[in-house]
Design a binder for these strands. Sequence first.
DNA 1: CTGTTAGCGCCTTCAG
DNA 2: CTGAAGGCGCTAACAG
Lengths: 329, 329
Amino acid sequence: MSSIKDVARRAGVAVSTVSKALNGYPNVSRETRVKVNEAVKELNFTPNLLASALSSKKAGRVALLINLNMDSQAVDEIDMQYLSGAISTAVEKRLDVVTIFFSMLRGRSVSEIADYFHSQGIEGIIIYGMGKEDRVLQELIERKEFRIVAVDVPVVNEVTSSVQIDHGQAQYEVARKTVMENRGKSVLYLSGRPDGYVTQERLAGIRRLAMEEGLSLLIKEGDFSEKKARELTFRYASGYDVIVCASDLMAIGAMRALQEMDIFRPVCGFDGITLMCYAGMQMNTVRQDFRRISELAMQEMGRLLEGGSGRRIVPEYQIIRMQYQDVLN
Amino acid sequence: MSSIKDVARRAGVAVSTVSKALNGYPNVSRETRVKVNEAVKELNFTPNLLASALSSKKAGRVALLINLNMDSQAVDEIDMQYLSGAISTAVEKRLDVVTIFFSMLRGRSVSEIADYFHSQGIEGIIIYGMGKEDRVLQELIERKEFRIVAVDVPVVNEVTSSVQIDHGQAQYEVARKTVMENRGKSVLYLSGRPDGYVTQERLAGIRRLAMEEGLSLLIKEGDFSEKKARELTFRYASGYDVIVCASDLMAIGAMRALQEMDIFRPVCGFDGITLMCYAGMQMNTVRQDFRRISELAMQEMGRLLEGGSGRRIVPEYQIIRMQYQDVLN
DNA sequence: CTGTTAGCGCCTTCAG
DNA sequence: CTGAAGGCGCTAACAG
């Protein structure tokens, strides 16, 4: 590996000049810039990130904080989409990325975590699936020591932004479609974990629908759990016309229960994960593009890292009526 | 963030002494070691990885090279298991990890890739799902510039190891079980992509079985593709007693086809992914513990990074007869 | 516009 | 066993 020194010698200039030329500083003449670039090509020079980060105090490293829930292994798809979206746009933006699972942080205090990040040269954090009760992350955000982008959580300040779809509206529309199609008058709603931010928004959406359409509505906490959804469906489904679930996994659980009970009720899910196709389920769902959401998050991170100020972003969400489709087509 | 200097001052010793104490050098007295540790605690000192890496020329960073195939989104589970296993043991071993997708390397030459890794301070690479034809990775390994652990690929040299299950034996056993249970006399085998290393080993396994049991055997390239498996099943299944697939995804494809054809043939899969349960399929599969495999890979990487020499590791594989289980249990 | 000079935070000989 | 000094590769004032 050749260093900046070699380039300088080869180009017949000083190291600092090379540095400036490479980092796009304005005060470098056309000629020298060309000379430097030639030397770089010839030597196949690639700047040492570690050194550059140490020296400039700008590592440009961002941590992807994701919450792997090992309980329901079926949602890997979402996490992979998140990862893949974030990483690919990080490459474009020449940002370094480390993946960190929530479980690695468990039991550590906020300052321990902060120190850990600092010591790793991490300046930005993208948080996926943060809970409402998560005091530690909450505080990490409040400290404002890191640029943060929170996905699906409406927390913002000078240095943190949020990226999310409009969950309330999405829940409203997908539920509305299902109810209308089936002329339902009563709805059993299986909600997410009560400490999730999205849970509240989606609840608001279904409540608005119930209000507007004069539906009778029973809300039960399904905790995003397939199992729990199944149990709740067994208990309450017979008394309601339509079942609306705050996640696909719960919808699958509800479907399973209905099959066993041998009664029919229209069910609607939410995320639109591929699994649904494999499970052979047919229902309406919002079609979330998790990859895109994550790309946006990283995009926003890039802005923040370059000194942009935090703010809230709400990208347009899109609802695609999803029918049962054989995955093979 | 306090630096090593602060610690030195607080402990009343020189920076170099702190460094030695912290890095477990032998020539430091018991007392000073204690003093240093106290100072570290009090100041909540966390060494700066970037600086330490730059200075020592040992970054301890390892890249996870994974091959996300966006075509069949159903195998995210495996990749997530890989990631999660590798990352969690990397944390234990205090190794820094970056996740890199194959797609990010496409079109780049070997030396470009090598430079990229070097510039990132990457010393080790764990390769998941490398193909046989992959000249670039092949050469990267041959260069011996990086410590490498190849998962499921039997490539080794002084600085690269391999971690894998015994695919031949596994294929043999799972197929054997299925054939015996159904008293089959002929087998349709849907193999994986021809350039995959594991494909050959599994083929050898099924061939051995056919030989030993005197089965008639038809082998077709299924390319690990659900769609292709489906087509092949349509074409050939009726003439054979049992269908053996080199991957779960293909097994699902085969099952789908059989359902549509409305004929019954026992099918056996391979990996044992969770999806099978959701798809409502019942069949024998090897139960691979991808997480564990990845943990072993990282373990081995740790060894290599500490100067251990490369060699081949074949952990014991375990076969668990997997029945159809409702995921809710 | 270009070169000189300090560091960034840590590790590592080499004297003491 | 401990401390002083040099340097890893690069950036960032500051002079020229």
